[in-house]
Nucleic acid binder design. Structure first.
Length: 232
DNA sequence: GCCAACGTTGGC
DNA sequence: GCCAACGTTGGC
């Protein structure tokens, strides 16, 4: 992989570990495990034994939304700004998505596969929303910034022999034909929640604070289709 | 700049 | 293992 400048994810403060059993980490997968246990448990009891069931297959998501801040904001004297234009400006238009310090978001990054697409979402700014598309070009590997005392996302609790935090490499793919503002997505989400539709359960609204989130292919296609339609 | 939502921590 | 206090996210 080309060595490159950094792209930063949502500059979350380093948190100390609650252990790997993050409350939401792989929630969907856990649901799948539960289902599997139910059906494969001969006694059909509520109680299940972990060693009595076959491991559930990993349910892998294929589409993603990743948040970053396009406007300057200083954290410990360091500017955490990283918008889609910053990614575009890097060599090979590629950067590593470092600085993610949330277990659920980390787990999703570890599920990412090379070639998958992600929306670049602008957060904490004048007009939040989806700016463009990028591609995962390197699967999850250790986020070196957790060991760098000078880095905003330094995590003293993470040990080199058992790193807590990971990142992926992303490459700019293209801008959307138009910026899709959060406000518009929200209106659609509310409509779909009331009457049904692709965005009824979109993580952007059901898990607003999650900085790396999966989309179903229906959600992805729907959002993408908006770029060629008139703004609401 | 406010503050609701919610993830994390730590006391018990 | 509960849950109150705390800290952060991120829209508004």
């Amino acid at each position: 992989m080309p060595p490159k400048k950094r792209a930063r994810g949502r500059p979350l403060k380093p948190t100390t570990e609650p252990g790997e059993s993050a409350s939401y980490g792989g929630d969907i997968r856990e649901e799948a495990v539960k289902e599997k246990r139910k059906t494969s448990n001969a006694k059909g009891s509520v109680k299940t034994r972990a060693d009595a069931v076959a491991p559930a297959e990993k349910i892998l998501h294929s589409f993603w939304l990743m948040k970053s801040e396009p406007e300057s904001r200083f954290e410990n004297g360091i500017d955490v700004k990283f918008g889609i234009e910053d990614l575009k400006a890097l060599p090979n238009q590629t950067g590593c998505w470092d600085g993610v310090r949330n277990y659920q978001a980390r787990n999703f990054m570890r599920d990412m596969q090379v070639g998958q697409q992600a929306f670049f979402y602008h957060s904490n700014c004048k007009e939040p929303g989806i700016a463009g598309l990028m591609k995962i070009v390197k699967e999850a590997y250790v986020d070196h910034t957790q060991f760098d005392k000078k880095d905003v996302h330094y995590d003293a609790s993470s040990k080199a022999d058992n790193p807590k935090w990971f990142m992926v490499d992303v490459q700019f793919e293209r801008m959307l034909n138009r910026f899709i503002p959060l406000s518009e997505l929200k209106k659609i989400h509310l409509q779909h929640k009331a009457k049904g539709g692709a965005l009824r359960d979109m993580a952007l609204f059901t898990r607003a604070r999650l900085s790396v989130q999966p989309l179903t292919s229906e959600e992805f296609d729907f959002v993408l289709s908006l770029e060629d339609k008139e703004a609401l």
